[in-house]
Design a protein around this nucleic acid. Sequence first.
DNA 1: ATGAAAGCGCTAACAG
DNA 2: CTGTTAGCGCTTTCAT
Lengths: 339, 339
Amino acid sequence: MQSRKPPTMADIARVAGVSPMTVSRAFKRDASVSAATRNAIIKAAEDIGYVFDSTASNLRSQRSDFVAVTIPSINNANFADTVRGLSEGLKERGLQILLGYTDYDIHEEERLIEQLLRRRPEAIVVTGGRHTDRARRLLQNAGIPVIETWDLPKDPIGHVVGFSNADAVKDMVAHFVGQGKRKIAFIGGDADGDTRGTDRRTGFVAAMKAQGLDATRLIAAGRPPISMREGADAMARLLETMPDTEAVICVSDLSAFGALTECQRRGVSVPARIAIAGFGDYEIGAISVPSLTTINPFPHEIGAQAAALILRVLDGPAQGATVITVKPELLLRESGGQR
Amino acid sequence: MQSRKPPTMADIARVAGVSPMTVSRAFKRDASVSAATRNAIIKAAEDIGYVFDSTASNLRSQRSDFVAVTIPSINNANFADTVRGLSEGLKERGLQILLGYTDYDIHEEERLIEQLLRRRPEAIVVTGGRHTDRARRLLQNAGIPVIETWDLPKDPIGHVVGFSNADAVKDMVAHFVGQGKRKIAFIGGDADGDTRGTDRRTGFVAAMKAQGLDATRLIAAGRPPISMREGADAMARLLETMPDTEAVICVSDLSAFGALTECQRRGVSVPARIAIAGFGDYEIGAISVPSLTTINPFPHEIGAQAAALILRVLDGPAQGATVITVKPELLLRESGGQR
DNA sequence: ATGAAAGCGCTAACAG
DNA sequence: CTGTTAGCGCTTTCAT
């Protein structure tokens, strides 16, 4: 924990007997420096324990090499996968992710976006398409590519890489109806902050009505993140208030698994007595007994597509706003009953 | 996606009819600016859509307001909790987390640390106490507080907030032995990169030997992150090769849950025929049927303590290196058999 | 409470 | 392939 001032390029230049500019070039990939000079500089740098100072580089070159990313929660496998996809795609270009989480709150998101923009990122990726007015304005005026993900906003700010949460649930409803089920319930999506959850519930209600079915079997699960525990509690309420329910769609695999455990503790057979579906294709759903019927929204692919889009936009001249749809896939497994 | 140059403090100064220095002061909390002047400046800033440029501020003030953090994986609830604890603790002081993940690879960690140090963080928090020689050197010479977490390294680089993975498992072994179990197995901890997993397995072997028991019931689970699936596969091998095993300790709750599902699919009763314990107190363990006996290492508390330590060290004058132990707690639940 | 001058460490731009 | 000059946008420092 020494505290003397760290060495600069000027220090290296002195030791290596060259100009600071040559030192600067020696640290760039493509720069034209003779091999001998470069080696001498690298050696001098190691000898004096030099560490490149991005701060100065960023200011002078007006490039931060940051891509800002906001996700609702850091503790969520789906969003983590999207960040991994982003990170992998951006790494080759030396872009680093500056990550922040919003706790599923658009006001917190607004604060976060402002914080992140101060770091002058090259682009910003946000989760969801609903923002405060001020956040929208900040993003619009940022002068950098903006990418909204995990949604298909009606009025996008810039680019979009996402899918319709409502449509995905509609497919699940159709699946259950095709099985002959009529009394279908939905758990979650009742809280303000959870726009994706709300969209899923809205999609459920619309799909049920379109099928001419009763769309009032809705069980609240509280504010996101919806835990397994909350899924279990919601299932307890469902079984008590609407015991004749034939199938239930949960806002996520985590709540679906919680719901499943509640059935197990009560001796309610899944899927024989009640079928369960989740959302998100979390690992738990593939391995639980019974395994969970769910929807895979391809979170990693969303991140990978967003990364590729960023690279394209930063390279090429300004094109129009792009909308990339990553279509979710129904995964029919044990908890959903016969195919 | 406009691309004209963003406004600077000089622009605000011109509009508000003051000097750039006054603008700078108006954006600081404690600075001495008259209320009227400040309001005029804030208004001018909003009018022209000014966004503060940290990049320039950082360079001039030699303060980045970053704390660098490395974790093995972004997709892990335990490490996510530690990051949340850190983040919450650092937020009040306006410190932002610059997060990177190592994929459980100390060479990747070395690259990452170098990347992060270029951003000139105020402090750096790393997960684990094993690093490449070069990474150690980088950290030692960084001239900032270094905090190793999730471990109790023999030769710490700087500060430590962690616990002994080996001792925690020793307690679990003692618990099973106290129940009269003798044939105890361990799943995981066989891979190079997973230092915490290896420490846990080492602790298992040492504890078994100390009890005079056979410490050879070791099942490999592959490279981290150890998934639920890998836990299930390992349990399959255990049941086939050592069917008389009475209890198994898994390297994490995720593999433990996988192991549990394998038993369920085979009709092997847990805990009657074989008891299962995990590590980490993930949510799955509290809700699965049966619930999982496990060890809570208090991940959020590790982060909170690390944050508090950073604030103390950055404030006060250089004290000696601190070692904070966050003692893990045994959670006896259904999968572990009678208490 | 406000301003003027200088400079943080690097690199764009230009020169050779 | 290498050097010189200037300056990125802010804030430290010193004045007033």
